[in-house]
Each structure stands twice: as structure tokens, then as C-alpha cells.
Write a protein that binds this DNA or RNA. Structure first.
Lengths: 230, 230
DNA sequence: GTCTATAACGAGATAGAC
DNA sequence: GTCTATCTCGTTATAGAC
């Protein structure tokens, strides 16, 4: 019986993957707003009702795609960091940044799904919160090791922002100085801002050397979180 | 005859505006991907073919909405700058930044239309290029007056980025030092990055005091383009 | 000339009976 | 799981009102 169940489970995993693959292809062609279970089923030669055995609703399929995308970019960031583990923190920071951009360029539609405009009528469940923070956590980890024991050389926060920075630190960057936490959040928004501008066309007719500008910015941000060049 | 033509033209303008208003309402409800000429016509009590007297295609209606959105945010930025005309450049810079964010919060769907994920199957025509640059031009103008005749105190660009910065300067910021042009582009991406993260939900469960963080960043960016605090 | 309405096309989605 | 009848869509051709 266990082999039968094993086979069944394997089949289920394969079909689930096939559904998500097809849905991703549709995402690229039509956008998330038009993702329809029926079209996915048709493309797979299934009947739409059969899909509901794998995903109880269109929104749950969307959630699965979003979680996969977050996991994919998170894994890319973690891989880049691991490959640079022997390097100084600044190099690891830069490696993560470049990995983030590379992933986005390689998966533009999945990037749009998670960092672009929200899908109308869809509201993300809590399942996405964990995977969504993997890239950020990788950046935090690098900065944390750099600060271990050492002091920091960041300009002080304005008083008005300090409580918020303290709260954020307690929430997801415990042990770091609040100035660094705030700088991290800002850096993270800037990274995505650069990539979004590049991917969403805002750099068309404006910036040609996007890779060069991005690398430049990544270095500035490293500086901003306390990882100076030398 | 001129009154007749006047009346006709007035009617035409009114109908055109009504179509765009209804389309904007649909944009908010369903997203740009699902914008449909027929639904707009139905809602207005017209027949779909009648819309073609006003917009030759669905894509041209989308283009009109995009141009309107760019003009709306551009006008908001210019208004903010004009209202702060007597203030020092840094205050004018901050006013533009705040106006940008305020506009985005007040018009989230139009913001998503122009700064969010591209609409699948739609490619923006050249008509959008001019309006798209109004906010940026306003920022450039403020920095330009600040630099008139005076020197600058920005860190030098890496050699690898200098040619690109020189090219960008010639293209849309003539007369500014290339370091400033590069910093302007980066600042612009960061502004939109902050607003996008706020509007698109990336700050959920992360940043509470979004206004405070944004103002803080706007100040840092002013510094970055050479408009220091005192 | 300017507009609206009717009708139609080909393509695709959808709901429900079977 | 299948089939069909009935929607929607963008777009065009055409005819007639103003």
C-alpha cells in the first residue's frame, strides 16, 4: 500500500507542478489579472473541475505562484550569499544585490507578481509573509555579522523616526542599531525601486547602462548600511 | 456657425471626459488588464461602436489614461514647486517629493498604471514620453537653480559610470555636473521605490510610519543631489 | 461632416444540463 | 467528464439622424 500511496503522491506532486508551470506561462502572456483556472485546465488537457482537487480556488493558485516566486528569489539571494561566504560583508552584500537583479531580469513576470501592482480583487494571505522576507533576511544577516561586536559609523536618525526604527529593529532585526535597521529598509526599497524602474520601462530612453548604475547604487547602499568600501 | 461648432466641440469634450472617468472607475475596480470598451460604453448608456468616434482603439484609451495620469502627477509636482518658489532649493525639493507621494496615495490606481507592472499586450507609444518626464523635470529644475554658478560637493562617480552620466546629462539635464545627473536618476528611482513599496503592500507588517520614513528619505536624497540641510 | 445605432465577425469565457 | 447554449470581448461595415 505504501508504494501505491507513494506513487499517488508523486503523481499529485507532478500534476501540481504542471499546473503551476502552465499558470506561470499564462501569467507571462496575459498577466495575473486574467489568470483563469479554466484556461490552465484546457492547456493541460484536463477539465476545469479537476483542477479544484489541486487548488481550491483561483486565489489559492495565485498564492502558490506568489509563494513560489518569493521562495525562488529568496533562494537566489541565499545562494549568492553562500557562494560569497568567505568574502568580506560588503562583497556579500553586493552579491545579494546582483543576484536579486539577475533573478528579476530572468523572471520578469514573477517579479511583477510580487513587487508590481497588486492583483485586483486578490489579497495576500499570511502564508506569503514568511517567504516574502527571505531576501531581506539575507541582507540583514550579512549586516549583522559585519556589526558583530563592532561599533558603527552611521549618521544619527532624526528623533521623529527613532521610535519607528526601534520598533522595526525589535520586529525583524534584533540586535542591530536602529539606524542600521532604518537604512536597511530604505536600501531594500531602493534596490527594488531600481529593478522596477528597469523592468517596468521607466528607464527607457533615460538610462542605458542599467547594470552599471545598479551596481553603483548597490555599492552606495552598502555604504548606507555601514559596509564601507575599504 | 461658430456657436454650433462650439457646442459640438463642447459636447465632444464632455463625452471624452465621461468616457475617461468611467474608464478610470473601471481601472480601480478591475485593473488595467480588464479594461473593456464595451463595459465603459454600457455604463455610459452608449453603444460600444460609438466609442470609436472618441478613441480609435482600446489601447488608445489606455494611452489617454496614462497620459492623463502622468500629467496629473506632473502638475501636482509643479504646483508644489511653484508654491514653494520663495523657499530655498532644498525645501522646494522636499515639497515636490511630498507632493509626489500625496498624489500617489490619492490616486493609487493611476499610480499603478504608470509606475506599476506594465499592462500585458500594451506597449506605450511615444506620446507618453513627454508627460512622463514632468515630475523628473521639476526635480531637475530645482537642482539646476541651486547649482547656478556655484560649485558642488558630490563624491566623484566611478570611471565606469562617467560616460553614461555624461550622456544622460546631455540628454535631459544639460548644464548639470554628471555626478548630479546620476544622483538625480537614482533619487527618482528611490522616491518611486518608496511609494511603490508603500502602495503595493511591501511595507505591510514592516513599516508603520510610512510618512515619516518617506520624509526622512526625501531629505537624504536632497543631500544626495547636493542640496544639504544647512 | 459628426455622431449614434444596428448588426455582424471571430475569438474566447462561462454556466448548466447531461 | 462532455456538450451546448449563452455570455463577453474588440473591432468593423453600414445605415441613418442631426
Amino acid at each position: 500500500m505504501s508504494t501505491v500511496r507513494g506513487a499517488r503522491e508523486r503523481a499529485r506532486i507532478e500534476v501540481t507542478a504542471a499546473i503551476k508551470d502552465e499558470a506561470r506561462r499564462m501569467l507571462a502572456a496575459e498577466g495575473a489579472a486574467k489568470l483563469s483556472l479554466r484556461a490552465v485546465a484546457r492547456e493541460l488537457g484536463m477539465v476545469s473541475s479537476a483542477l479544484y482537487r489541486y487548488f481550491p480556488s483561483r486565489d489559492e493558485l495565485l498564492t502558490a505562484l506568489i509563494v513560489d516566486a518569493y521562495d525562488s528569489v529568496g533562494a537566489a539571494a541565499e545562494r549568492a550569499e553562500a557562494a560569497a561566504r568567505a568574502d568580506p560583508p560588503r562583497a556579500r552584500w553586493l552579491a545579494i544585490c546582483e543576484a536579486f537583479r539577475s533573478w528579476a531580469l530572468a523572471h520578469p513576470h514573477e517579479y511583477a507578481l510580487i513587487y508590481g501592482s497588486p492583483v485586483p480583487g486578490y489579497s495576500a494571505p499570511l502564508d506569503t509573509v514568511g517567504p516574502a522576507s527571505r531576501v531581506g533576511n539575507t541582507l540583514i544577516a550579512v549586516v549583522r555579522t559585519a556589526y558583530e561586536g563592532r561599533g558603527l559609523a552611521l549618521p544619527p536618525l532624526p528623533d521623529s523616526l527613532r521610535p519607528e526604527a526601534v520598533r522595526m529593529t525589535a520586529d525583524f532585526a534584533e540586535g542591530l542599531p536602529p539606524e542600521v535597521t532604518a537604512a536597511l529598509v530604505v536600501a531594500w526599497a531602493q534596490l527594488a525601486g531600481m529593478v522596477s524602474f528597469e523592468l517596468f520601462g521607466q528607464f527607457n530612453r533615460v538610462v542605458e547602462d542599467r547594470a552599471g548604475l545598479f551596481t553603483h547604487v548597490a555599492g552606495q547602499l552598502a555604504q548606507g548600511v555601514g559596509l564601507p568600501a575599504v
